[in-house]
Structure formats: structure tokens, C-alpha cells
Design a protein around this nucleic acid. Sequence first.
RNA 1: UGGGGCGUGGCCAAGCGGAAAGGCACGGGUCUUUGGAACCCGCAUUCGGAGGUUCGAAUCCUCCCGCCCCAGCCA
Length: 570
Amino acid sequence: MDGFESKVPPNFIRSIIAEDIKYGKNRGKVLTRFPPEPNGYLHIGHAKSICLNFGLVAEFGGFCNFRFDDTNPGKEEVEYVDSIMNDVRWLGFDWGDRLFHASDYFEQLFEWAVDLIKADKAYVDSLSAEEIKEFRGTLTEPGKPSPYRDRPVEESLDLFQRMRNGEFADGTHVLRAKIDMASPNINLRDPVMYRIRKLSHWRTGDKWCIYPMYDYAHGQSDALEGITHSICTMEYEDHRPLYDWFLDNIKVPGHPQQIEFARLNLSYTVMSKRKLLQLVQEGHVAGWDDPRMPTLAGLRRRGYTPEAVRNFCERIGVGKRESLVDLALLEYSVREDLNLKARRVMGVLRPIRVVIDNYPEDRVEYLDAVNNPEDPSAGTRKVPFSRELFLEREDFMENPPKQFYRLAPGREVRLRYAYFIKCVDVVKDSGGQVVELHCTYDPSTRGGDAPDGRKVKATLHWVSAPHAVESEVRLYDKLFLRPDPADERDGSSFRDGINPDSLEVIGSAKLEPSIAEAPAGSRYQFERLGYFCVDPDSTPGKPVFNRTVTLKDTWAKVAKAEGIHKARKA
RNA sequence: UGGGGCGUGGCCAAGCGGAAAGGCACGGGUCUUUGGAACCCGCAUUCGGAGGUUCGAAUCCUCCCGCCCCAGCCA
């Protein structure tokens, strides 16, 4: 290093690599890889792995290969291929020309399999899948050898070639490594290397009808690419002896080191591809990119920035123990980033009409508003002010508790960048619902400062009614009610924990006119409310916003603690 | 009852024999034209438990307890 302390907290993988470099292992080189299977969208858990693999090589001066682990054509689709590459790029990583596929190595893998057969270290088994399972034994009992285990090398060679030629139906034969049917590690009980799948592959088409299993393909792919450190998740720890066995018994160009770390679990969400797929297929969400999904596509649409996701990944650390990271940390990460970048704007979600009785009917003033107090270079803008305004319903209470210091009958507050106003009348409908407020303004407080030094407890956001832009705003909340929805040990399904109120659509929020044309994907802070992102569903006349995350809300905390009900319902 | 891993504050996580970093959360305060942000303070006499070694242990040894993963022709 150069004397500067890295901001990345130390972790055991960095230590291993630093040590390897120090002692000249791999001639001081570091090459990692990110090997997704194109059978689903990438999620925040993958982001952890991507940041780890690319981050490590950035730090130590190496490369990270991007490799599709495409050994199972039955589950893989090009839709996923495209989304995966797009998401990694979005996250901010560049693999240059280092794009690879396990399928690039099918021919080499086949040849090595033949070598293994010739060395009597692999054989064609003709047991059925059920029989293989029976013969495998259990966790506590050793397995039994297949009757085909000792079939002549020549016969296996012939059969394997004919498997490749397409002479047999799916499931009739497999190629197995000949290791140890009594091993306490079940992965070593003659693992299957190849199975017959008469399926066309998105890259190799119909060239193959036998496909290698992960265990046989992965390590050899790593070796072929010169990977030095093959980083994967904990469930592969049991596979490491097998990973090493293949590498030790095949003439590969190197022997990468497999290192396992704990996958990410995030509270109030699920991470398994299977469960995410179910949420999509069963219609609990609108798609893989639904803003409630922990997928990168979902987070992006929700308004998360790549920087926020990367910072989050850095903060959670890397270890070997199973953990459940608090969603609050992810939310903190976006707020932190957006606070610095997002332009501020005023928008009223649940409007209540307010008339400024002493403000001239036809007058319109354009007041100066700061675009981002954290970033002076963002400049200022003009916001129209007029006699009729929209205020947030929640910002008015007829009988306010003492901790509530927003608008109330007889009370004076400040309208941000505008004037002090005082509530002088409350108009209700026949049902007793407050439908309109009448206020007076103090002309001397233009801009928001009282020349007499008078203080006011609250500053409210507002929108001029005649100038308001109508918008649909989608308020998202956590998708699950339970901190650990994946925990189904009580017999429930993770679906039972779905939050029925995870999405609330505000049909006609009122926004200040400056964001009428905001392009999809642009992010704003609606002052006092939260961060919002323009959704691609927006139309020229009506923008659609997704709430990324609320601002920290001390009042909400107080109100909850005091049992104060906030005014809802527009 | 087989094998592999893991147990440090509410949630993450440093630490690797010299005596508990940091972040989030939480609580309090300052400031404030966002009850936002920023800033300040507080928050494990203790590291799953019990023994042992040592002048000294979260770090070494022993035993115990708890949690996770593995019996796909998935990855």
C-alpha cells in the first residue's frame, strides 16, 4: 500500500490474498471471477460478491473475470444473461474483454473426462436417478458401490462417447468420478460429472446433449482462466475437497484456491432465487424489477444509487458466520448518498387546500429556493407562490398535542422560502372532515425571515395550487412484515409474511412545476418527506414517482411513542 | 448417533497472548427556513459456557452448549 489506510475494513479474504502476494504465491498475481448462473436476476447478495471480487483485484492490482456458469440449459435464459451484465455495469464494474462462459470449455472438459475414465478415475453409471440416490447412503451410513462401478474402462469410454453422440435418452446414463462411496463427505461419494440433457443451449445450440455438473465444470474453468482465488459462499465449503480432487487428478494449468464466505441475508426480505422467482411468478410483485424486490433491477428502479449499494456492501463486512443484516443499514446508505446528490423539491402527497385570505387574487410571485443545501453548486430555482396552496394534511392538526408544532388553529408557521402564515379558519364538510384551511400571511416575512426576529416552530413544504403538477406517487414499504421471512421453521410459508401494505399508490400528489419534465431515473428529495425517483411508467402529462426511502422522521417516532394518530386519508 | 462450518453489545464487525476499533440502531444535547443534514456525548469490567495453561487469555488447551450447511442426473 502507499501509506494511506484503506477505507475497506479488513477481512479474512484480504488477509489471505495479502499474505499470498507477500510470499509470492501465484507469482504475486491476483485473479478472481464473478460466476453467475443466468437463471435469475442479480440481487443485493450478488452485489456483495461482485464488490468483493472486483474490489479485491482493484486493491491488489489484478483482474476479475466475468463468467457465466452456463452448465444447465434447462434453467438458463438469455433474458437473465442480459440483465446480469447490465446490472454489473450499473453497479459500476467493468470486466473489459474478460467475459467468459463455462460453455467455452465444454470440449476441453469432455477431453479431461475421457482422461479420467482412462485413468480409471471415472466411469459411466447406468443406474437410474432413484437408484443412485439409494446407493449413495445417508449422512450416517456409507454408500454402496454401483454395480457399474467396475465396468471396464473401454466400456465406459465407449458409453461416454455414445452419450455425447446422443444415442441415449435423458437419465439413462451419467458419468461419475470414482472417488469413495464410503466418504463421510457425501460430495465425494462418486459425484456425477455429466448428465444427458437433450436440450439446446443458448450458446452451444444443439452441439451437446451431455452437460457437465457444477462441481466438475467450476474448478476446471477457474484453472483454465488462471484464477488464483475462487471466492464462493459457505455452502460450497463441503465441495472444496472435490474441487481440489478434480484439480489434483487432471492435467490443469494451475490450482486455484477456493475460499468461502457467508452470503448476505437482509432483514425483511428474501434472497433466494427460488423465492424471488415465486414472488414474481405468483404475482406478489410486478416483476423482477419491482421496486420492492432486493434485486439490483428493483433497487435501481426504487431509486438506489450504485454508490449507495457499494457503500452498503463495504459496510457489512465479509465473514464466515451466518448473519442477518439490518435493513436500516441499507436505508442509511442510500440516504447518505442521496442527501449529497439529490435536488430538493417540494411536493405534497396528501393535499389539503389552503387559502391565504389576505393575499391578492391574481398575484403570483416566484420565490427563490435552494436546490441542495449540501451542494451550493446545485444553485437555486424559482418556485411560484399564489393565494391558493396545497399543504400536507399531516401538517395540520385541529387539536394538536404539545409535541406537534406544525399548523393548528391560531398558530403561525413558516412556508419554506415563502412567508409566515397563520391559520385563521377551518372549513369542514358535513361529515366533520377538514376540507380547507384559511390563513393570513405576513408580507414582511417574504423569503421566510421575520424582520422583527419572531420565531416560528415549524417550516412546512407547500405547492401553489394553480401551478401544481399532478403526479402519481408510489409509496413503498418493506415487502415482508417479519425480520426473517425465510425462516419457515414454524411451518408457515415465507409468503405468509408478505406485507399487504408494501405499496400505497397516491393517485394525485401535487408537485412544484420545476420537475414536470424530469426524466425517468432522476432522483429528488421531496423536502421533509423522502427521496423519490422518476419511474419509467411516467407519461408526458403525468410523472410517476417511486419513493426510495423516507427521510428520518423524528416526529413519526414521537407520535408513535405517544400513540398519536397521524391524519391520513386524502 | 457421519462430515463441514460458525459463536465478540439490539444488528453487522475489527481483534490473532499485553489487556474490547468502527458503522448502523438506540438515548441525550448543540445547531437548523427540511422535526432532514451536520456536530458533540452516551451505549460490552466483557468476548456462548465451564475448567485449565500463563505474570497476563476474546485470543492457547480440554470438555460442554447452541446455531448453520451437506444425502439434485441444481448452482
